[in-house]
Design a protein around this nucleic acid. Structure first.
Lengths: 244, 244
DNA sequence: AGCGTAGAGATTGTTCAACAATCCTGCAAG
DNA sequence: CTTGCAGGATTGTTGAACAATCTCTACGCT
């Protein structure tokens, strides 16, 4: 039962190979069956296959995902923590239905956190290495490309990543966690939107604008633009709710 | 099997009574054995019985808490999400050991969020009903009383509650969640402190000061004081780390 | 002696099947 | 129309079992 088809002399190389494979696997599904199941469910929810209000039956999902009930419940817990599922005792797990109040709540936090991150960059200019803004540039360009192709959900994803990377500039593990949750919940809200194009299209240019200001180290102006961006985006969602 | 011993005429009151009882029960053991186990573990950690770095053995705790391994692991998950436990794959769960970097990270978030809440009160003065500050007053007085009795851990608890109630003024579910986690992690940090008195004592007065300013609706000044409070508190923790 | 390695023992990761507790549905009685 | 009560379905919890992984000890080699 050899682990490789090479000769027996190259133990060092074999071990290195094993380590890299193990690292790859660990990167793909970070730890467990539960995480893998959670990943599948997360995609199903954020991409709209599981709509807000839907109930997730345990027995049904154990068959589809091929995991035990206990493992599935652990996956549920993971997603509950991200705000993508809610538990109702003795009734099951559901995809939450967010309302206008949640929009206000989410955007209130986004404004505080994101704007503060950008303003805080001023003091950290010396520490910020070159190329730190590259992920942001990639996201902007990905959004523009997706828009040209008319793939509006992809535009939304790219915009999300832009803001996640923006927050990442703060180098705060906890801030990254919080942002992950906030943006995940935001995706739930997008499902109430009939026409995703109108929702995402205006913000492609504005993201580029913010990126340019960051690249020029004009942080105050970037923060101001971001503030207004978030206010407008919130209003857009609230309008979508009213005209639903 | 009547639900009350009163006469039949007072339906409104009876329903209110029922609601309150149901709320009470729901508050006590909110959902499940897992939650109950998590509550016990949470207290054990925050009160120092389980110190940072300690490993939590599954078989040992299943006996102590009288739950099955699966349920215990669900409790572990809950606490992991609160930051009170960390999983090391195939090695078990541990009480995390935080360092100076975590202090900086935590306080960075605390400053942003708490100060913003206070500043935001300005715009919401008309909505804020009278008596909204009462919990804050109670916490200040509880801290003062505990200090007189020399019960410094209780002082720390009261101070924590003060800040939690302060955040509560924003009426944001998500902000409450985040704060709960931040303060829980903060408690882990307190355990590196040799003399809790020096850590908590100076802040009793300052909490009262902030409360008074809030009561007088001088929100800008309250926010300034709070900002300085948090900077000093952070520095105190960092000093405690260095002189350890 | 020092180093690396193999294997035993212990712990965690995952599954399964069963039972208890709770909720929902539909129907019957007042 | 409301109330109360089965019956069925779903979730909550348990215990046991096995697989996968880690830790520690003891052995053999240089």
């Amino acid at each position: 039962m050899s682990i490789s088809q090479r000769g027996d002399g190259d133990d060092e190389g074999r071990r290195a190979w094993l380590r890299s494979v193990a690292a790859d696997v660990a990167r793909q599904d970070r730890s467990s069956s539960a995480e893998r199941a959670a990943n599948i469910l997360r995609r199903s929810i954020t991409e709209g296959a599981l709509r807000p209000g839907a109930q997730l039956s345990e027995i049904e999902l154990t068959e589809v995902l091929d995991v035990s009930r206990n493992t599935l419940r652990e996956a549920f817990r993971l997603l509950t923590h991200e705000g993508l599922l809610v538990y109702k005792l003795h009734r099951g797990v559901f995809v939450p239905e967010l309302d206008e109040q949640d929009v206000v709540d989410l955007y209130r936090l986004r404004r505080v956190l994101e704007v503060d991150v950008v303003r805080g960059l001023e003091k950290r200019v010396p520490e910020l290495p070159e190329g730190r803004l590259e992920p942001l540039q990639d996201d902007v360009e990905a959004a523009e490309a997706a828009a040209l192709a008319g793939r509006w959900p992809a535009v939304g994803t790219a915009n999300m990543r832009f803001h996640r990377h923006l927050i990442g500039l703060a180098d705060s593990r906890r801030l990254d966690d919080i942002t992950g949750r906030l943006l995940a919940e935001l995706r739930l809200l997008f499902h109430v939107i009939a026409r995703p194009q109108e929702l995402h299209e205006p913000y492609i240019k504005r993201n580029r604008g913010i990126f340019e200001l960051l690249a020029e180290r004009r942080y105050e102006q970037a923060a101001d633009q971001l503030q207004q961006y978030l206010l407008d985006s919130e209003q857009g969602l609230l309008d979508a709710f009213k005209s639903r």
